[in-house]
Design a protein around this nucleic acid. Sequence first.
DNA 1: CGGTATCCGGTACGATACTG
DNA 2: CAGTATCGTACCGGATACCG
Lengths: 120, 120
Amino acid sequence: MSVSYAQLQQESPGIFTEACPSRTVLDHVMSKWGVLVLLSLTDGTRRWGELRRSVDGISEKMLATTLRTLAADGIVERTSYPEVPPRVEYSLTPRGVELMERVMPLMSWIQVNADDIVRR
Amino acid sequence: MSVSYAQLQQESPGIFTEACPSRTVLDHVMSKWGVLVLLSLTDGTRRWGELRRSVDGISEKMLATTLRTLAADGIVERTSYPEVPPRVEYSLTPRGVELMERVMPLMSWIQVNADDIVRR
DNA sequence: CGGTATCCGGTACGATACTG
DNA sequence: CAGTATCGTACCGGATACCG
């Protein structure tokens, strides 16, 4: 497991340069809304309306955009049921679960330290 | 250790709402350049010029802005030496080291999976 | 070397209205 | 219910020039 930038670079030179795919993934996952949508999905499958309500302050437009991007990346799965009224459910893919296993420790740390950081 | 959003919320209701400090910290740390600057600093102390060269594509303006924000958050420490020519060094604070310990596993995962995610 | 000041364009984003 | 379409704007971020 890498613990420094130097080690990452040694394993794969050119990592996180502008053209590197890692930069793209980083932008998608760490985007303002991406991480919050993913966080909400760690609870399990959610419907569109549930996501909209659970991610405080997100607009319909950004929810749609974010979900499409993450679905294209294979991190989120979209399942629509041909019913009336329509029902669409979103969940993490196995890859998404793996990703969030790495993100959750960070979120926990932020939760604990945020007050102290912002207050200063 | 929390592994789901539900658990985070149970520990601290209102977490990651718009006004929550966690949102602010998240925005600073996960910003486009913030995470890359921090990543570079995991190697140890770096001078301004080194940072500028190591973070591919960053402008002077954004490097300055990012460093000021992270320094104000107590994540990065700035040390200037009264010499001619001037020398300024940046390093992670203990808090920054703690933070990056949580971020590095994520970066490693992205490094390994990025190609596969973007290619699809 | 290590910045700051200023200008400025693209786009990320929000608000609103509308639809299958 | 689950979106798309359209429009308008704030601000992020790049380019350039300059300073101690």
